[in-house]
């Protein structure tokens, strides 16, 4: 793909805090209009990367562009066109909901400010609570307010840092419906998340650990890129089998999908041996299957250690 079709294109992005390299030669290409999922365990460097891309942190190395603007020299133009939702609530708790939205709208020098603020309040369903102090909102509502605030100036690129953390399932579903609608209208969305059901809705995925990108690409290609081998198991007493398999060395991962057990891993030979062993018992039916996204994400997310321990040690 060519440069112009990319909403974000960065190469070699590096950030060092003190002596720790928190983001290490990170590359990312986000096509325009895509929903791009950014995954990785706690402390892996997602927030730091996003901050570098929208001009809030100066990278110690690397280069790139956002919406065609250089991330090193044109961060003002980037800020005009990007909606960035911070991971931590960063609106003013001592301002009311309306005052917060109004302030952000003024920062972007929006025309018809009042109309857009009213619209945002109505969309949020907060029109009748507009005079309430933002600090008195519940956690989930704070998230929803932040989201509304970062979208108020109709940006062409959204960078959302764990936007749905602490948001209830219905609101999350509404949120993703909205994201897909925006993407369809040409807005690019980069979203970091720890939720598997959200990762599955993304067109593209990048996975980061210890500041290094481990894998990225079209979501559908991810299982193959990882090299996952998956088996589908059916039969009686599936719960007992699950417990037994979990205790087995070299099995990779096991998860139940209803009455069916999925067993997958990257070590095809080890799996093959275990399966051969099991097949001899003739209790369950084992079928090789194409590894799906769910398996890939569980593989990536569940087993990854918290990156903080290593980080804290130096």
């Amino acid at each position: 793909m060519t440069q112009t079709e990319m909403a974000i294109s960065v190469r070699g992005l590096t950030k060092i805090f003190g002596k720790r390299t928190v983001v290490d030669h990170f590359d990312m290409e986000v096509p325009k209009g895509a929903i791009y999922g950014f995954l990785g365990p706690n402390g892996s460097g997602k927030t730091t990367t996003i901050r570098m891309m929208c001009g809030l942190l100066i990278p110690d190395g690397g280069e790139g562009s956002c919406l065609g603007y250089d991330i090193l020299t044109e961060s003002h133009a980037i800020k005009e066109n990007v909606g960035y939702m911070t991971q931590r609530f960063s609106l003013y708790e001592d301002l009311t909901i309306r005052e917060n939205l109004d302030f952000i709208a003024r920062m972007f020098r929006m025309k018809d400010r009042r109309k857009h603020v009213d619209q945002a309040l109505a969309d949020l369903g907060l029109a009748d609570r507009a005079g309430q102090l933002a600090g008195t909102l519940s956690g989930g509502w704070k998230q929803r307010l932040s989201l509304a605030a970062c979208m108020i100036h109709k940006p062409r690129l959204l960078m959302l840092d764990e936007p749905t953390a602490g948001v209830d399932p219905k609101a999350r579903r509404d949120f993703w419906t909205e994201i897909r609608r925006l993407a369809a209208s040409g807005v690019t969305v980069l979203v970091s998340t720890h939720y598997m059901d959200e990762a599955i809705q993304c067109d593209y995925i990048a996975y980061i650990a210890y500041g290094k990108k481990l894998i990225s690409g079209r979501a559908a290609d991810i299982p193959d890129k990882i090299g996952l081998v998956s088996w589908r198991v059916e039969g009686p007493d599936i719960g007992k089998l699950e417990a037994e398999l979990r205790a087995t060395e070299g099995i990779g991962q096991v998860a139940r999908f209803g009455a069916v057990l999925h067993v997958w891993g990257t070590d095809a030979d080890a799996l093959e041996n275990i399966v051969a062993e099991q097949k001899k018992r003739r209790i369950h039916s084992w079928r090789r299957q194409k590894a799906g996204l769910e398996e890939a994400f569980i593989y990536l997310m569940v087993d990854a250690p918290d990156n903080f321990s290593v980080g804290a040690g130096g």
Partner: peptide
């Protein structure tokens, strides 16, 4: 933490 949202604006 409000500095982050503030300076994310132009």
């Amino acid at each position: 933490g409000t500095m982050e949202a503030l300076i994310a604006t132009p």
